[in-house]
């Protein structure tokens, strides 16, 4: 009863902005997402790698390279848009397993903090992580195969 009487007097002032806000939110939520583009690039096996890789990345890597792949200042290099990663995925596989001690240059900036190795990860897991990091955040490397990574890791 109370609210029915309230509504008419409020409607003109309140409902319009509420509708407007809702419309804006819906409009901004649209558009093709990054996910769709990744799906177009990868086959079914690779999509499975990507999904598992995302989970492994959260556990093993995100605390340093960040969930958004941007790294931290000049202390921890980015993976998003990183020439070092995208130019040589086999080398990146070896870094993931063995870590890195020597300074390295990513997109023209030198990084000097050591990265610890992940010796507990097997070749499949490394393939999954690499599929994720080379295709997330706008990176568009495409598929990474298990054979390719096994070969890269055997030339340790």
């Amino acid at each position: 009863m109370i609210f029915r009487n309230c509504l008419p007097s409020m409607s003109s002032k309140l409902i319009v902005p509420i509708l407007f806000a809702l419309a804006t939110a819906t409009a901004c939520g649209g558009g093709s997402s990054e996910g769709e583009q990744v799906l177009n690039r990868l086959n079914d096996t690779e999509i499975k790698y990507f999904t598992n890789g995302k989970r492994l990345y959260s556990t093993h890597c995100a605390n340093c390279h960040m969930e958004n792949g941007e790294g931290l200042g000049q202390l921890i290099p980015p993976l998003k848009g990183a020439d070092y990663l995208l130019n040589d995925v086999g080398r990146a596989a070896r870094i993931i397993v063995n870590g890195a001690k020597e300074p390295l240059i990513v997109n023209g900036i030198e990084y000097r903090q050591p990265m610890p190795g992940n010796t507990s990860l097997n070749a499949s897991e490394v393939t999954e992580i690499l599929t994720y990091i080379t295709n997330a955040w706008g990176n568009s490397y495409g598929g990474v195969s298990l054979n390719q990574i096994k070969t890269a890791l055997s030339t340790n």
Binding site: N63, C64, M66, L72, G73, L75, I76, Q113, P114, P116
Partner: peptide, 12 residues
């Protein structure tokens, strides 16, 4: 400085 766990996120 050499913390492998939560420090980078804290600093971010």
């Amino acid at each position: 400085g050499t913390c492998p766990t939560i420090c980078p996120v804290m600093k971010q």
